[in-house]
Structure formats: C-alpha cells, structure tokens
Design a protein around this nucleic acid. Structure first.
Length: 414
RNA sequence: CGGGGCGUGGUGUAACGGUAGCACGCAUCCUUUGGGAGGAUGUAGCUCGAGUUCAAAUCUCGGCGCCCCGACCA
C-alpha cells in the first residue's frame, strides 16, 4: 500500500478529553474513527489489525477445537429472551418490526444458537459440536469508556459447545483453555495474560476469564506467582486462596487487568429453557450440556495498544501489525520504488511512505503507526548499496544490502 | 443511574459581559530534506433552544453530545 493513496491521515493531537491511551493512539494513527460514545468505525489500518486478530482466533477455533463457523443474525426476537428469562437484561437494545413485533439487538447468542442447533440434533451420535461466529455485539452499556475497551458495539468471537455427557464437556472445556492460551500467545499478549477464576454471573456458579495485566484494566485480579493463575477480586472473598495451588490470598499480587476472554460452563440452563435434548443409547431424552466461550476481538486490539505502546506510538506485535514493513523513502524514490516492488512480489505486507514529507515527519508517523519493521532507503544507506532496518520494539538498526532485504525480512517473519 | 467536568475554524486551544486570537492542517509559491522544517500569501469557527442585558462565546435555565469517578458489567 502506498501511503500517498491512503485516505486516512495521522494527527498530532486528539481532544484533551480523550485520556484513554488506546483511544488516543488509535485515533491519532487513523486506525479508528469515533462515531459516538462507545461506537467506532474501523479504518483501513485498523481493519487490517482487526482481521488479523480475527483470523488467528478463527484458525485456532477450527483447527485446535474442531469448531464450525456460522454467522447468526444481529437482530433477535425478544420472545426467545422471554423463554430464557433474559428479556429484562438492561444492556439490551430494543427495537420493533413494522408489524409491531419486539426485537432486540444481539448481545450474545445463546437465544439463537440453541433453537438453531435443536433443529439438527436428536441423538447422542449428533454430539458433541462446537459452533462459533465472529460478529458485532450490541450492549447498551450505562457507560461506554476506555476507547475500544468497552463499547456499545464491538466485535466478539462467541463459541457454543454442546455435549452429551459431563465428561465430554469437561474435556472440551479444558481443551478450550489450552486453545485460548495458544491464541493469546499468537496475539503477542501470552506473557501477560492469565487464567482467572471468576464469578459465573447469571449462568453458573463460576466462570473462567483470561485477564491481561494492564493499568488500563477495570478488573482487579489476585495473581499467583506460583502457578500463574489468578482470581478475580469479585470472588476472592469466597475462595480466599488460589484455587489451583492453594496459595493464601496474602501471598497473591493484586493487579489491574483487562478481561480479554471468558469461558462459562452453562450446564443445562439454556437446554432446559428451550427443551434441547438428545436420545441416549437407551432411547431416553436427556438435556444437552453446554458451554460458551468468548473473546473480545476489538477489545484485544485495544488491549495490545495499551500493553505495548511507548511514548512515540503503537508497537504492534509481529502477527497482528497492520503491515509487516513500513518502507520509508528519504529522497531516494527511484531505488525505494524498486524495493517496494520486490516486497510486493515476495508477498511481504508493506506500507510504502512515498510522500514528499520531511524525514522527521515520516519517522514520527512510522513510530505512531507501529508496523513491525521499519525499512529506510536514503542516500546515506545507498552509499553502501544498503537499506536500514529496525524493529519497532527495539532501538538498534541494522544495515542490510538492498538485494538481500526481502530475504532478510522473510527470515524474521518465519 | 448518582456525582464532577467540558462543548469555539478540519484538528488542538485562547479571549473581564463590549473588534473572536494563536498553533497545526489545507491551498499556491520559494527554500529545505536522517526525527513532526523555514518564509510569503490565502482558507475556515463560537453545540442547540429559551431567558437576563443597550450588548452574550462569556451569565441563568433547559435539551443534545462528549469525558472522568462511582454503581453496573451475559
């Protein structure tokens, strides 16, 4: 992509009201645009990041968990929520059909996926299954805040699993934890994201969250340095120790954290409400056992900004950077043009700053946008037939022969 | 939903109740080219409604919007 063709522009300033770091940097970099409180457009650079996060999650869901992707509607009949007793939830956005039928915007999809799955399951032979989607969710939050960390419309991956037996559910639930860990690792936040025991809300006694340590977080977790698990403050009074290894509350570290995922055992709550049953080997009707598993895709994007940003701007991890290479030409258009083409030919994702701007401005914008690698072509580097390469998260720069730069980048990305 | 703060060119910010100013951006030109460059000339603005007043960006009331703290958070 040529930066001269990008319709978005970076900005030096944002409103002094915007104190949330992820909002400041994402707005300044032109990744997102705020349409109203808690509602954002994702612009070309931001959408690339979002899609990359999405694809990492999607791949793991399909390959590691064997789940199948669907796309369910965003508008739901209120009737289904009356069936489960969730029609009084106050974050529901309500609307109506022309004929007067009551609708709500989807904030989660149990009320859709259960009746849907019911049409296809009748025997224990039809189980287990995992069904997921990646879709916008709508929640009329009493207070949207912290940029894209808590919005009224946000992108979420929601998976629902269906099982005949507790044993089957347990092993799937366990597997989902491993898969989640592997996802956060690929997203670049594996080292600061912890498995956390939490309350079950309206679904079950307990649930489990994945919490990324950050001062921007609205949750507090008690982190166990021994086993790397944590306990959400909301239940620390009840358990009073690390449920995993038994360390006492006083030995746990209190940290602010962002909830980047959660998994819930649903039991038969929704199956019972909708009469979702299967026939066992003896021909008896049994309720299907369920679990649900969420990851806030857009929230992960904001979290990554919060966790890795420095004074100069965003520092995207390798796998989700909008571009692998930010190629800057400092008065060396002809040579840079050639290098740009060789990157394109090799399939390297490259943003080419081909604009006539001062070097300082190009550097500043490059740091703000935060592509994984920065490659500079200038008269200075060309004297030795080289280009300069630097990782966004490191200070050191390296001179590489221009004929070898593509290979050099490919090796870094392997 | 309770409390606090804020709405001024495209962006960021000033202005005692009395001429709306500055910076950035943008446009044209010249110079400059390894850390948001210099000069010249342009460009564009008071959230909405009601009230007080000779006079309102400024004071009062209300609406709408935004931010923060708290409550809430399938």
């Amino acid at each position: 992509m040529r930066q001269s063709k990008l319709f978005t522009k970076t900005r030096k300033e944002v409103s002094s009201e915007e104190v949330s770091l992820n909002a400041q940097l994402l707005l300044r970099g032109g990744f997102i645009n705020k349409e109203m409180a808690g509602v954002y457009s994702f612009l070309p650079l931001g959408l690339r990041v979002l899609k990359k996060i999405e694809n990492i999650v999607r791949k793991e869901m399909c390959e590691a968990l064997g789940a199948q992707e669907v796309l369910m509607p965003a508008i739901h009949p209120l009737e289904n929520y009356k069936t489960t007793g969730r029609d009084k939830i106050d974050v529901l956005f309500h609307t109506k059909l022309n004929g007067g039928g009551d609708l709500v915007l989807g904030q989660s999809h149990e009320e859709i996926v259960v009746p849907l799955f019911q049409r296809f399951v009748s025997s224990y032979k039809d189980l287990p299954h995992g069904i997921f989607q990646i879709q916008a969710k709508f929640r009329n939050e009493p207070r949207a805040k912290s940029g894209i960390l808590r919005g009224r419309e946000f992108l979420m991956k929601d998976l629902y699993s269906f099982h005949a037996t507790e044993e089957c559910f347990d092993s799937y639930y366990k597997k989902s934890q491993e898969t989640y860990h592997s996802i956060y690792k690929k997203l670049g936040i594996g080292d600061c994201t912890y498995f956390t025991f939490a309350s079950g809300g309206t679904f079950s006694k307990y649930s489990h969250e994945f919490q990324t340590v950050s001062p921007a977080g609205e949750d507090e977790i008690y982190l166990c340095g021994e086993c790397n698990n944590a306990v959400n403050k909301e239940i620390i009074g009840e358990v009073d120790a690390c449920p995993k290894c038994g360390r006492q509350k006083k030995d746990l570290q209190v940290k602010k954290a962002i909830e980047v995922g959660n998994i819930f055992p649903l039991g038969t709550k929704f199956s019972d409400a909708f009469g979702l049953t299967y026939k066992d080997e003896k021909g008896n009707d049994k309720p299907v056992i369920m679990g649900c598993y969420g990851i806030g895709i857009s929230r992960v994007m904001g979290t990554v900004v919060e966790v890795f940003a420095d004074k100069k701007g965003i520092v995207w991890p390798k796998n989700i950077a909008p571009y692998t290479v930010h190629l800057l030409s400092l008065s060396a258009e002809e040579e840079t043009e050639k290098i740009y083409n060789s990157f394109l030919k090799a399939g390297v994702e490259v943003l080419f700053d081909d604009r006539e701007k001062s070097p300082g401005e190009k550097f500043a914008e490059s740091d703000l946008i935060g592509a994984f690698l920065r490659v500079i072509v200038s008269k200075k580097t060309l004297e030795s037939d080289s280009v300069e390469i630097k990782r966004r998260n490191e200070e050191k720069t390296v001179l590489v022969k221009k004929s070898e730069i593509v290979k050099y980048v490919q090796e870094i990305m392997e």
